[in-house]
Design a protein around this nucleic acid. Sequence first.
DNA 1: GGAGTGAAGACTGTATACAGTCGACGGAAA
DNA 2: TTTCCGTCGACTGTATACAGTCTTCACTCC
Lengths: 229, 229
Amino acid sequence: MPPRTKSNLTPSQPHLSPLSRFSLAEDATARIRRAIVSGELAVGAALPETGLAEQLAVSRVPIREALMAMEQEGLVEFDQRGRSRVRAFSEEDFEELFSMRCTLEVMAARLFAKRMTKADVETLEAMIDGQQATQNLTALSLLDVAFHERIIQAARHRPLAVCWKTIRSQIEYWLARAHRAQADRHLSSVDLTVPGHRRLLADLCRGSEAKAESAMRLEMATWREWLPA
Amino acid sequence: MPPRTKSNLTPSQPHLSPLSRFSLAEDATARIRRAIVSGELAVGAALPETGLAEQLAVSRVPIREALMAMEQEGLVEFDQRGRSRVRAFSEEDFEELFSMRCTLEVMAARLFAKRMTKADVETLEAMIDGQQATQNLTALSLLDVAFHERIIQAARHRPLAVCWKTIRSQIEYWLARAHRAQADRHLSSVDLTVPGHRRLLADLCRGSEAKAESAMRLEMATWREWLPA
DNA sequence: GGAGTGAAGACTGTATACAGTCGACGGAAA
DNA sequence: TTTCCGTCGACTGTATACAGTCTTCACTCC
């Protein structure tokens, strides 16, 4: 690295994206989310602020923020007294989650068909290639969700993105849960996911809202059937 | 009130709903929300935690919670440094809000057609009667939103209710804003709202999902046209 | 034995204290 | 005059302290 004097630090200095500083609250949120999605924290487990603060070696303040964020994501629920637990999902919860996802993703598909850019498509293609190269099931499910999220981002619709955030973690939870339940059966899931995504992307790119909608409905139905109850 | 001795306090004591204790954070949220919706807090105004805490005579902790909740509701936004401001809405924001509302309410209408109970319908009818009796424009707009929220509650779909909560306050904001802008023109809005709601409710009760959807789309279109940009 | 009672512990809600960052402003040097 | 630099003030992020509530459980009194 060349020696850098003050005079080298001009405003036009390129390629130095600002340091991203995560707060302790954000870190705690990510850590707790991962613990719930992975099953490390069992369903119904109590989440006392003091205990979590001790484990994560921070004060209760960032933990409180994290728990409130996780409630918004639907992974944590509070009782009347303010105590939080890992949310227990019922069969009905899953059906509701699925129908909500369907509604939001169909809306996203129509918007995508109208608004997509070349860069969007290239990014998505690259993501599919990344899925192709994956053998790890957990990683594949995360990439799967990330792919759909990218479509929603490309829809460039702020309220839609906010709504999506309220169900995204729950979808990850269900996928991870399914994988844990029958890791063996799904070893071929790459062969299922990748062509499905390629076809979906191709249909979304035709520019027809109606075609985009039906393609997304097909993708949703596939996901629904694939996922055990 | 009859004198009450300890022996009268049996578990079967009726009609004493538990005291609802609002936390300072909830109170602060409601107060700040009202201030933004009513225009008391101007668009773009800084919302320093210290200042709000002083005004509301609480510490910064409940204020922080309130601001985070308001961000989720879309009325407050944070900059990179964590400072919050009253969100500024653009014309595009309004269009996005409207299309999101349309998607969610159509979904709710279909669910309502399937799941409504007699009690739901009676409640909604009573709400319409309440609107009929209103002359105050601000009160009417709140009742209008409450009516639609009641339909969504009757849809009994948890993720849908969560998504609705992310846009509800923004809708109230736009309605209040419209009323402030042209309070005179809308003195006849009762005559517009009440029959519209009656017709909507009647169509939702026919039990046909398709009819419910088209009725709700009509209601949304009416709202859209009625609301100035 | 059973119901009432009181003290202890666990936990949240709220307040206060502390630390670090960023921007504004003003003064000094080129 | 312009630029650089340092100080100050405002504000957030985090930690710690305090207060109040609910549960539990043993104990006492009937």
